[in-house]
Amino acid sequence: MSKTPQSFNKPGRPTLEDTDIAGVGAAVLTLTRELWILNDRVQVLEAVLAEKGIEVQQEIENYQPSEEMQARLNEQSQALVEKVLAAMQSD
């Protein structure tokens, strides 16, 4: 079997099968729920701050988390991935 180096660009790895589709559907819904909760919270946060006369958009853009905050974000992000993957593997 002779492969060209360029054939490695898109190696066509098999991943999920038809039997996984229910899990994928559940994972998409789980993710959408989490995304919506977050979206709602950000809008509430911005509205509350705006009502108090505080403009935060640019500061958020350039914000650099502290070590502690970064650790908290990492933990929560990994927990989110775990939730989605657990849903994906459910029947």
Partner: peptide, 9 residues
């Protein structure tokens, strides 16, 4: 996180 959060898998 897709790596660090997938240890169970």
């Amino acid at each position: 996180s897709t790596f660090l959060g997938s240890s169970t898998v």
